[in-house]
């Protein structure tokens, strides 16, 4: 018979309000909702593309609603936040050792940012934005 039973004080639905770092973690977690929803939009887009020119044009026109613009703004924020936090984490996830020393972390993350910028410009160019 224990006189002081263990009470685990960890409310399962509100624990992340206890510390700013938990809130930052959860704000990153939430981006997955918008990324997931955007993936569904991509699958729908493929279906419309396969259905022919009229369906594709209607799909593009359908994107122009106010709801779609709001969703795109949220998805933009979510994907950029996901990308930035992902690249910031690379220096912890895959440290590179050269001889006795480790390559400074900001060089590893920085290289990812540069690659991200280059790839994005290439995709924009291929898509005929400029």
């Amino acid at each position: 018979m224990s006189r002081k039973p263990l009470v685990r004080e960890c409310p399962p639905t509100t624990w992340y309000f206890r510390q700013p770092r938990y809130l930052r973690y959860m704000s990153r977690e939430i981006t997955s909702v918008f990324v997931g929803a955007y993936c569904v939009l991509l699958v729908v887009g493929l279906q419309r593309l396969a259905a022919g020119p009229a369906a594709w044009e209607a799909f593009l026109l359908g994107l122009r609603s106010a709801d779609s613009i709001v969703f795109h703004l949220l998805a933009l924020a979510a994907t950029f936040y996901h990308a930035a936090t992902w690249f910031n984490a690379t220096q912890k996830a895959m440290p590179i050792q050269v001889g006795e020393d480790f390559v400074p972390g900001n060089i590893i993350s920085g290289a990812h940012y540069v690659a991200w910028a280059v790839l994005s410009v290439v995709v924009l160019f291929l898509a005929g934005v400029f």
């Binding site: 990324v35 955007y38 939009l41 991509l42 887009g45 593009l60 994107l63 122009r64 779609s68 613009i69 795109h72 703004l73 998805a75 933009l76 994907t79 950029f80 996901h82 990308a83 992902w86 690249f87 690659a115 991200w116 790839l119 994005s120 995709v123 924009l124 898509a127 934005v129």
Partner: peptide, 20 residues
């Protein structure tokens, strides 16, 4: 995660342009 980080932001930019 890597593909999303590298490619989804720019793809969202493209459909956002279409949305505008």
């Amino acid at each position: 995660g890597t593909v999303i980080a590298f490619f989804l932001p720019v793809i969202v930019v493209l459909t956002f342009m279409a949305a505008l």
